[in-house]
Each structure stands twice: as structure tokens, then as C-alpha cells.
């Protein structure tokens, strides 16, 4: 029973990340009709917002100590973060809380990146075939990856959770679970609810939803739907970026982390139904939980290697039975 509960928690946690990335992918596809293969790279850029803020806060003052030498004969460098020299314990606290602080930084940065990406590149591919969109966005993802690798190197860079939510918590007598993973689960649920509420209860959201249903009629009413869709692209970028920021204490970020999530997130979108926000979120959690259960030793001993193919297997079955996905609209990506 404990093992099952733990795998449900793992699945929800992993599903949260899949759902957040898939949500952004679906928003972009539903509004702009673009299949954005750079979305995983956006998740990675978000994570590197946290790395950058941490590095900025840790900028060090270097003082050479001539009384001590390194193993290679140069004077020893004594390194102290500037912020600790200036603010003392408050400086240390700011470094420890760099991940939550990064959220404040990541929102405008990711929004800007999204708008630049859409206006500078993606908009020229709206009327091009999906294959062209996939090629150009995949190329963009590789370029972004290589830029990050050039700046930060290829090794993962560890980020710590704030001390208040570091370590693990006992859920029952026998179940312990990392604090930060629980924080991440609640964060993803909150962000998903926020996006849904934004689309459901604001005028802007209403116009976007109307545009997703019938773009031309909304345009005939004198509404500049393109501008709103550009903002939606920015919102999707922010959602993926924040998912990346918050994931850094779970998975030390490296330049390739986006690609690891991208393929799975696309499967999530297809299983959920292209263009269906609810489908993307449901499929994200569903596939996350299925993947966790498939990794259990009891399951693997009967079906070795099932943990590595379960998501694709489910996708094949669902697409055979229901080609438009779990909650997809009729006609979307069916031709």
C-alpha cells in the first residue's frame, strides 16, 4: 500500500511537469496552429533563469592570500559572495532562497523571450506546413541548447531548495517524501488553475477562447486576434519557464533537460487531444502516474522494460481507439 501511495505521489509530481509543458504546447497549437518543438528548450531556459539568479547572487569577491598557495603554486584565492559581505546573514538568506526569487525574475524575462521568439521567427511560419514549423522550431531548440552549453558548460548545475522546504517530510509512519516535490505539485496545480481561470474568467481569455473556436468571425468583429495570440504565446512561454525554474531543485539543470521532457510532453498533448487544454493536463497526470507504476519492481519483474515504453504503448492504443485523443475536438490533426 505504501509503495502504491508513493508511486501515485511520484506520478502526480512528474505529471505536474508534463502537464505544465503540455499546457503551453496546447495553448500555442490551439491559438496559433503552430507545432512548437522549441517548447522544451523554453522549459530549460526557465531553469537557467534560476541558475543565472543564483550565480548573480553568488558573485564573489576574490582576495589573494599570499601566505597560502594552491597546489600549482599560485596564491590561494579567498572567495566571498559580495552579497554576504554587504548584507551579512540576510545575504546568505537571499542566496538560499534564490529559486523562489528567480520566479520574479523569470516572469518578465520569459515573457520577453516568448514575444521576441513569436514576432521574430514563429509568425513567419503560421501559414507554412506543420513539417516546416517542426523543422524551424526544432532548429531553434538546438541553437538555444548550444548557447546555454557555451555559457554554462555541459555538466548539471545543482540548485538547492530553500532551507524551509529542504529535506523530506513524513506523510505516514513509513512514508517520507521530499518537501520540495510536494511544493512542486501544489505549484503546478496552482499555475494550471491560474491559466484556466485566466482563460475562463477574463475578457481577454474569452476572446482567446473564441478565437480558438473561430478565428475569422472574431476578426470580423473588429478584434485584433493576432495580437492576443502573440500574448498567449508569451503566456505559454512563461508557464513553461516557471515550470523549469521550480524544477531545478529536483533535477540539477543542464542544457539538454528540455529535450528530455519535450518528446514525452508531445505524447501527452497527442494523447490528451491536440488543442484541448483539459486533455493536456489530464493526460499529463495520467501518463505520469502510469509511468511511475510501470517502474515498480513487481510490474517490471513480469514485464521487463515496460517502464520505458508504457507511455508510447498507451499513446498507440488511445490513438487507435480514439484518433483525436482523449479530449480532442473532431477534425483537429485528423486529416
Amino acid at each position: 500500500m505504501d509503495a502504491i501511495l508513493l508511486q501515485i505521489l511520484n506520478g502526480l509530481d512528474k505529471g505536474g511537469a508534463y502537464a505544465l509543458i503540455a499546457l503551453g504546447l496546447t495553448l500555442v497549437f490551439g491559438t496559433l496552429g503552430v507545432v512548437n518543438f522549441a517548447h522544451g528548450a523554453i522549459f530549460m531556459l526557465g531553469a537557467f533563469c534560476a541558475v543565472s539568479i543564483n550565480a548573480l547572487l553568488k558573485l564573489e569577491q576574490v582576495v589573494l592570500d599570499p601566505t597560502q598557495t594552491t597546489a600549482w603554486g599560485t596564491p590561494l584565492e579567498i572567495r566571498t559572495p559580495y552579497i554576504e559581505s554587504w548584507l551579512g546573514e540576510w545575504g546568505t538568506l537571499l542566496i538560499q532562497y534564490s529559486v523562489p526569487i528567480s520566479i520574479l525574475f523569470a516572469i518578465p524575462v520569459m515573457l520577453l523571450i516568448g514575444l521576441v521568439m513569436e514576432r521574430g521567427l514563429i509568425q513567419f511560419f503560421y501559414k507554412r506546413p506543420h513539417a516546416d514549423q517542426i523543422l524551424v522550431t526544432f532548429g531553434l531548440a538546438i541553437i538555444l541548447q548550444e548557447i546555454i552549453k557555451e555559457i554554462f558548460g555541459a555538466n548539471p548545475i545543482p540548485q538547492s531548495a530553500p532551507p524551509l522546504v529542504a529535506g523530506s517530510v513524513s506523510i505516514t509512519e513509513t512514508i517520507v517524501y521530499p518537501y520540495w516535490r510536494i511544493v512542486y505539485l501544489f505549484f503546478s496545480l496552482t499555475l494550471i488553475s491560474g491559466v484556466f481561470a485566466f482563460l475562463r474568467f477574463t475578457t481577454f481569455g474569452m476572446v482567446v477562447r473564441a478565437g480558438m473556436q473561430d478565428r475569422e468571425t472574431v476578426g470580423l468583429l473588429g478584434i485584433n486576434i493576432e495580437r492576443r495570440f502573440t500574448i498567449v504565446f508569451g503566456v505559454a512561454t512563461v508557464v513553461a519557464g516557471l515550470a523549469g525554474v521550480m524544477y531545478t531543485p529536483i533535477l540539477p539543470p543542464d542544457y539538454h533537460m528540455g529535450m528530455d521532457f519535450l518528446v514525452l510532453s508531445f505524447v501527452v498533448v497527442v494523447v490528451g487531444g491536440m488543442g484541448s487544454l483539459g486533455g493536456a493536463v489530464s493526460a499529463g497526470f495520467l501518463l505520469g502516474i502510469l509511468q511511475s507504476f510501470a517502474s515498480m519492481n513487481e510490474v517490471n519483474s513480469i514485464l521487463p522494460g515496460i517502464d520505458q515504453i508504457i507511455i508510447y504503448l498507451v499513446a498507440v492504443v488511445i490513438l487507435l481507439v480514439r484518433p483525436r485523443g482523449l479530449m480532442g475536438r473532431k477534425g483537429v490533426m485528423e486529416d
Partner: peptide
């Protein structure tokens, strides 16, 4: 007790780590 093979580059190992606990 057990020797479990994990895919290369798995990223998130939580589903392989939780069975260790019990």
C-alpha cells in the same frame, strides 16, 4: 535485496528510488 536496471539518462529517478525505501 534487488538490482534494478535504469534507462541511461532517465533524469527523474524518483520511481526507482521510492521502492528502495520499503
Amino acid at each position: 535485496v534487488e538490482a534494478v536496471r535504469t534507462p541511461l539518462g532517465a533524469g527523474d529517478f524518483s520511481q526507482y528510488l521510492t521502492p528502495v525505501l520499503n
